[in-house]
Computed example of a mutant assay.
Amino acid sequence: MNATATRAGLARGGIELRQLYTNGPDLIGQFLTPAIALAVLFLLRGRMYGDSGLSVAELAVPGLLGSIIAFNGMYALLNVLVLDREDGTLLRAKAVPRGMTGYFVGKIVASAGSVIVQVVVVLGVGMVIIGGSSLSGPGAVVTFVWVVALGLLAVLPFGAILGSVLDTRTAFLLTMPLMGLIAISGIFYPITALPGWLQAVGQSFPMYWLGLGMRSALLPDEAVAIEIGQSWRHLETAAVLGVWAVAGLMIAPVVLRRMARHESGSSMAERRDKAMQRAF
C-alpha cells in the first residue's frame, strides 16, 4: 500500500471525524437511536431478570454496545459507499493517482472512529444512569479492547462489500432483516430465553458474540450463570469473529477492486437517474 496515499487517507479520516462531531444534525444521527435505547433501559432498571441479581437493563447495556459495533460498524461504510457512488465522489477519487487507496483508508478510519466514540459515550452514560457495568481490572479492559477491535474487523469489510453492490433502496431494505437478527442475538434479552433453533441462528452471526464479549468484560462474574453453558466462551467468541473477519478481509478487496474498475461517468449517471425516478 502506498505510504503517501495511506497518510492522506489517515488525514482524510481525521478530518471527516472532526466534521462529524462538530455538526449538529450528524451528532443527532449518531446518538439519537442509542439515546432512545438507553431511555427505555432506564425505565426497565428496576425489573430484575430471574435470580441473577441484575436488572434487565443492566444485562442489556453490554448487548447494546455489541449491537452498535455490529450494526453501525457495517452501515457506516455501507451507506457512505452507496451515496458516494451515486453522487460522483468515488469517481472523483478514482481520477486522482492512488486516490482510491486514500479514499478507502479515510472511510475506514472515519467509520471505525465514529463507532468507537459511540461505544465509549454509551458505555459511560449507561454506567451513570443504569449501573451494573464496569471495567473492573486489567483483564476486563483487555477483553473489552480485543472484542471491539475484532468486532470491527468482522463487520467493516462486509459493510464495504454490501456498499459496493447495493443501491440506496436495497440498502434501506436491508435494515429490517438486520433488526430481526438483533432481536434473536441476545442483545436486549438473554439468548437462553429463545427456542433452540433461534439460538443456533443467532450464534451464526457476529452480533451475538459481540454482545457476549461485552457482557464478559462489563458484568460481574456471577452473571455468567445466564449464558449458554454458563461460560463466557472467549475462545469461541474470538474464533467466530475471527472467521467473519478473515472472510470479509479476503472478499472485500476483490469486490472493491471490481467495483472501482467499473466506476465511470455513465454508470454514475445511470444510478443517479434511477434514484431520481424512485424519488418521484
Rank of each mutant, 00 (worst) to 15 (best):
N2T: 14
G14A: 11
I15K: 12
L20H: 10
Y21D: 04
Y21N: 06
P25L: 12
I28W: 12
A39V: 03
L44Q: 08
E58C: 07
L59F: 06
L78G: 04
L78V: 05
V80E: 04
L81A: 09
E86A: 15
T89V: 05
L90Y: 11
A95G: 13
V96P: 00
P97M: 06
R98M: 14
Y103R: 01
A112P: 12
G113T: 07
S114V: 05
Q118V: 09
L123S: 07
L123I: 02
V128M: 09
G137I: 09
G151M: 00
G151W: 02
L166D: 09
A171Q: 13
F172E: 06
L173R: 10
T175K: 11
T175M: 02
M176N: 01
M176G: 09
G180K: 03
G180V: 07
S185G: 06
L194E: 08
W197H: 15
Q199R: 11
M214I: 00
R215W: 12
S216G: 15
A217R: 04
L219W: 03
D221S: 13
I226L: 08
I228C: 00
Q230S: 14
V240W: 04
V243D: 03
W244H: 03
L249F: 11
A260P: 03
S266I: 04
M268K: 10
R272M: 06
R272Q: 13
M276S: 15
R278L: 15
